[in-house]
Design a binder for these strands. Structure first.
Lengths: 233, 233
DNA sequence: GAGTGGTCTAGACCACTGT
DNA sequence: CAGTGGTCTAGACCACTCC
């Protein structure tokens, strides 16, 4: 059946993919174990392992010790999004980047932020409001909260020349975070800042980042009309 | 310096992460090569390789043969999104799923679709318009184009009981695809279908999938107000 | 208890690329 | 050309989990 042509993990992966896509191995089917495949393909078990593990990571195979490897019944496709610094995103598109700080103050945050960042009731946060512009036109509105108790370094920064987005990425490592994507209708306030019509549909990213058990920062990014986030799968 | 405690690739990765986050190794720095780290950690080079490769995949390290491994200067965080079948997404939230086909016809598609799917000028596509509902309320509007030349199986399907979304995922494997996320303002048409106010901001996903060099299908999903897409990083 | 995947090892060769 | 990461191998042991 097979010749000696499966000498590396990529070709093994391609062959397994071929068998899945051709429905030789159907969704739900148990496939041969690693040792058998290694024999069939004429390579080491570790090579087969690498290929199958990669396919399991992308959601096409389900693997469990003792139970073996099965073709995923209802595959959940995974897309990977790049989350660049806003300045680099804009410059990467060939536009001129400009940043403008609108306001900066230390205040007791609203309930929504307290909940999302799991703050103590009397925590005061640095609240920054600013706009990133591409070729002079508003690109995204950044509404950010930073916890100075967790990030004391922030007290020495003015955020005049550098946006909080960029400063945080370059200076404050984080251990985990969560992102929510949604859409909203521009209020009068947002339409003013982003130079768009009131009630226009806008793309929104809410993101919080954590270090250990404490929230570092939480931000809402509201993008100007026409913004698109793209990826390949 | 180090004891014998780095016996597996995860602990090696943790230690490397610690050195990056503590700024012992700063962005741009060249770190020791695999052989040196293996000696220091008291493990095999393959174990170090696995750890560093994983970190490079998540964008924290830059690795090049001969040039060595550096801490990424401007890390691009990557988020992984799960893209489930709509029915499962709704049922997974504990809602009752309902699907309704609005129209189905084979027509010459508009220019935008011809371009996006790189069709021949006289290709006719199956055009399906339908709505997915959660607990009886509109959840997402599916506007789909399928190329019957690439997917002849589609001719036997009525899409009365099963949505094109679900049928395609379960029956038509694809080799690649692209996704675009954006926001738009509801037109009168969309506000009618999704039972929302006209001009309300709506979350939109455009997705095309390909097999070999040919486009299988292209779809625009317009979600009802309030929809959120969430992930952890 | 036994079968499966998960991982580690020591060694080897190769592929790429900076100098 | 030489140094680095990328990968393969054969063998081993372990961890999990189904029966």
């Amino acid at each position: 059946m097979s010749d000696l042509s499966f000498r590396n993990w990529q070709s093994v992966q391609d062959e397994v993919l071929r068998r899945i896509n051709s429905r030789l191995w159907k969704p739900g089917d148990l496939i041969p174990n690693e040792a058998e495949l290694a024999t069939e393909f004429g390579c080491a078990r570790a090579t087969v392992n690498r290929a199958l593990q990669n396919l399991a990571d992308s959601g096409l195979l389900d693997r469990r010790r003792k139970a073996g490897t099965r073709v995923t019944l209802h595959p959940i496709r995974k897309a990977t999004l790049d989350i660049p610094v806003i300045r680099r995103e804009i410059e990467g598109k060939g536009h001129t980047y400009l940043y403008s700080l609108i306001s900066s103050q230390t205040v007791i945050p609203p309930q929504g932020i307290i909940g999302r960042m799991q703050l103590k009731p009397d925590d005061r946060l640095l609240h920054l409001v600013c706009v990133h512009m591409a070729d002079g036109k508003p690109y995204v509105f950044e509404n950010r909260w930073i916890n100075p108790r967790v990030v004391p370094e922030v007290s020495g920064v003015r955020f005049i020349d550098q946006s909080p987005n960029e400063w945080l990425v370059e200076n404050i490592p984080f251990s985990s975070g969560d992102i929510t994507f949604s859409a909203l209708s521009a209020t009068k306030f947002e339409s003013g800042i982003l130079a768009c019509k009131e009630s226009e549909g806008l793309f929104v990213i809410d993101r919080s980042t954590w270090r250990g058990g404490e929230a570092i920062t939480s931000v809402r990014l509201i993008f100007a009309p026409g913004y698109q986030m793209h990826t390949d799968i």
